[in-house]
């Protein structure tokens, strides 16, 4: 008698059905049909149009050398706008903006995640008061806060670049904390507990179980923190003291004059593209298969 088990081929890959998580789309319960389906598609298209329409004149202006009032479309196409944007220091400003926003995101995201985890698990005393405190940078009028804070930073001899990062991180933390709190509210600590009872060290649990599971939320809150640095004018100028010329500085100063429409359009488009690319990446992030052997 031969044992049947020997005929099982170990080389054949085992096909698992894709892991389903709460909130994944495609559930038959949430699929719309009939009129509701048409309404859903039409409203999605309208909202997409509403979001996309402002970019149309921006794109047209970017490549318009001449465009006067009665003409519906640019009268002369060309790259004058691009040349002017580069002459105004647009290239270097783009790199400065990118560096600053990445640094802000790298610092503010883990801080926000840690604060959110502590607050959502309720082992923080005066949790509500701390939540209000964390949100205060968003609640205060930025101009007053920045001017007052800048006196303190200057007296403490904080280098301008460090000061800009410190203040922007403080502004970004409410956003990262808030978005991570939502993620932790839906996070099951049982995954971590299970890994630890199976003998994984706390570092391994964090690295292989916890981080992969909250990766999409981390990406989302890093994106928010990135946007804080990417769009800031006031803090970069006032605290930075002109040491850091970022894209918003160039755009604001160019847009305060007449006749720069096409260079302002080129600069604005180049300011919109990196967040859009990041947004595309975030839309694709899924749970990074926790526990996977690498």
């Amino acid at each position: 008698m031969s044992a049947g088990t020997t005929s099982v081929s170990l080389d054949k890959p085992v096909v698992h059905p894709p892991r389903r998580m709460p909130g994944d789309h495609g559930s038959p319960l949430t699929q719309s049909r009939g009129v509701a389906r048409v309404l859903r598609i039409v409203s999605t298209a309208l909202i997409a149009l509403w979001f996309a329409l402002p970019f149309l004149p921006l794109v047209l202006w970017s490549f318009a050398n001449q465009w006067m009032h009665p003409a519906a479309f640019p009268m002369e196409a060309g790259t004058d706008g691009l040349t002017a944007a580069i002459a105004n220091g647009g290239g270097l400003a783009f790199l400065h903006s990118l560096l600053l926003s990445l640094v802000v995101a790298v610092i503010a995201t883990p801080l926000g995640a840690m604060a959110a985890r502590a607050l959502s698990r309720g082992h923080v005393r005066f949790g509500k008061a701390i939540t209000v405190l964390l949100f205060s940078p968003v609640l205060l009028p930025p101009f007053a806060a920045v001017l007052g804070l800048n006196v303190l930073l200057l007296r403490a001899w904080v280098p301008p670049a460090v000061g800009v990062v410190l203040v922007l991180v403080a502004v970004a933390i409410p956003y990262t904390t808030f978005s991570m709190r939502a993620a932790y509210a839906a996070y099951d600590d049982g995954f971590d507990d299970a890994a630890r009872t199976l003998g994984a060290s706390s570092r391994l649990t964090l690295w292989r179980i916890h981080l992969p599971l909250i990766a999409p939320a981390l990406a989302r809150s890093a994106f928010l923190a990135f946007l804080v640095g990417w769009s800031d004018y006031l803090i970069t100028l006032v605290v930075g003291g002109g040491h850091m010329i970022t894209l918003p500085l160039i755009i604001a100063s160019s847009a305060s004059g007449v006749g720069n429409e096409s260079s302002v359009a080129v600069l604005s488009l180049s300011a919109v593209i990196p967040p859009l690319i990041l947004l595309g990446f975030i839309a694709r992030t899924r749970n990074l298969d926790p526990g996977k052997q690498r």
């Binding site: 001017l147 200057l154 004018y233 100028l237 006032v238 002109g242 604001a252 847009a255 305060s256």
Partner: peptide, 24 residues
């Protein structure tokens, strides 16, 4: 010579006043 582009000249004054207030 380095140019710092600003949208409003008051931004430069604000920076100077803040520095003076801070004793710099």
């Amino acid at each position: 010579l380095e140019r710092v582009p600003i949208a409003d000249t008051k931004d430069a004054l604000n920076r100077v006043f803040t520095e003076l207030q801070a004793g710099r």
